[in-house]
Design a binder for these strands. Structure first.
Lengths: 245, 245
DNA sequence: CGCCAGGTTGATTTCGCTCAAGCAATGTGG
DNA sequence: CCACATTGCTTGAGCGAAATCAACCTGGCG
């Protein structure tokens, strides 16, 4: 029956041959631990809008995303939310609540169809015991996230809505954009206008107007979720020196 | 000469009897390590405005603050800055650049006369090797800071300037306020208006006006850096349920 | 004494929020 | 298959909050 699990259970898979293995936090594990991981891990699929976990849930383990994008959101009591980060293939999420032992402070929601492997607390603990390098990976992730969050604060304070939108577009272009033969770049936005607005800290109406203005100025063309940027350079010039990154 | 250092050098001291020892990250160390620490540590004093380290400096160790307050700031290329956090006695700062191995991403500047002990990289490394608990402390500090930074983003996005000022006042009151016999509270602000404005993400002129309004409404009285709050309850009601904390 | 940084106050303008309507795409139940 | 709700997005009008520019005050400090 163990055989059945490792070989034919569709929710199981070999981590060592996972497509995200190379970029994930888990590739530092030894042969033996990887086998343990493969055996205990449960892969699941989510549809757009479904939650991997919610703010306030107690932590029961971490997720390693294999496909699709996941939004990390924080809500306030009124139900307003801010989209704090977008996690993708290879990213481990829920590590923070795992490490701190507290309830989740953010909600993780699939932005589109996606799949991820769930690694239960106990297994993470035993893997961490035997693999200090895994702990280092988590720590570096926390440090990077901290840095990103602080940069975010600085941007909120020092940049205009328009500048923040331009910045967001540049970041997304770098992550998911494709270069056309003529050097222009295009992409399919992984986010609704509402989510984009919540990332840059404005209302979706305002976002819509800014997009209209950018389009009018020829800096970008928006059609539904499709974006075409004739010149990344010109777009980047919009925040001339206003960023450290 | 070693004796001279440990016994009479005014820059040296015994960590085990340090006034912040109980609340610092270092109290988990064993007897032997504490002695090593006491011997290698160098205490220094700074005046208001002087920097313990600056953004871009390479990391040479960490500081454990023994007295006074230190502002952690982030600058953009124009020289605008945001005050991200205020560290006080017992707090270890510079740990992030130490752990990530990168240059400092923030500047640390004394808000008033203060003193702190400098612990060189190499010593931190050897202490960490022998004391996993110290690493855990650093990690928890990173997780707390991450949480604070994300909450900060949420506040920037969902709260008005006035609400953010009220929140800042409440936090400062809790940290440094004194209760009068009649239940009212007062404190001496550790920050200039400019710094406060940069914390809540607005201009100092606007801050001044909001303060004027709060005073006019009887919620608080400002005189220089002195603040008097007749009813913390009334002040807190200003952000009725708008916060999770 | 004059200078200067930090703070307040005023006048003006800009930006972005709110409310509101309209529209396209998608889904749902009869 | 149609009537109808729903959701996501755009657009408009009006308003309010806050940025900007500028003058002025105040308390140190050389």
């Amino acid at each position: 029956m163990r055989e059945k699990e490792t070989r034919s259970d569709p929710t199981s898979c070999k981590c060592s041959v996972c497509r995200v293995h190379g970029e994930s936090d888990w590739f530092t594990l030894g042969e033996k631990d990887l086998q343990d991981l493969s055996r205990a891990v449960r892969r699941r699929n989510w549809l757009a809008g479904q939650a991997l976990f919610r703010m306030g849930d107690s932590n029961r383990g971490v997720h390693c995303i294999s496909e699709g994008l996941v939004a990390l959101r924080k809500f306030n009591p009124q139900g307003d939310f801010v989209l704090l980060a977008i996690a993708g293939p290879g990213d481990t999420i829920g590590y923070r609540a795992y490490l701190s032992g507290e309830a989740h402070h953010t909600s993780a929601e699939a932005l589109g169809p996606c799949s991820a492997c769930f690694i239960p607390r106990d297994l993470v603990s035993s893997l961490l015991e035997r693999n200090p390098a895994l702990g280092i990976r988590f720590m570096r992730r926390a440090l990077r996230d901290l840095d990103a969050a602080q940069d975010n604060v600085v941007q909120q304070v020092t940049l205009s809505n328009r500048e923040r939108l331009v910045h967001l577009l540049l970041v997304l272009l770098q992550r998911t954009g494709e270069t056309a033969p003529d050097g222009s770049r295009q992409m399919l936005l992984p986010l609704s206008r509402i989510d984009m607005a919540s990332m840059i800290g404005t209302r979706h109406e305002t976002l819509s107007r800014i997009m209209g203005r950018l389009e009018h100025e020829g800096l970008a063309k928006f059609s539904g979720r499709h974006v075409h940027v004739p010149s990344v350079r010109a777009l980047a010039d919009e925040l001339h020196e206003r960023l450290d990154a």
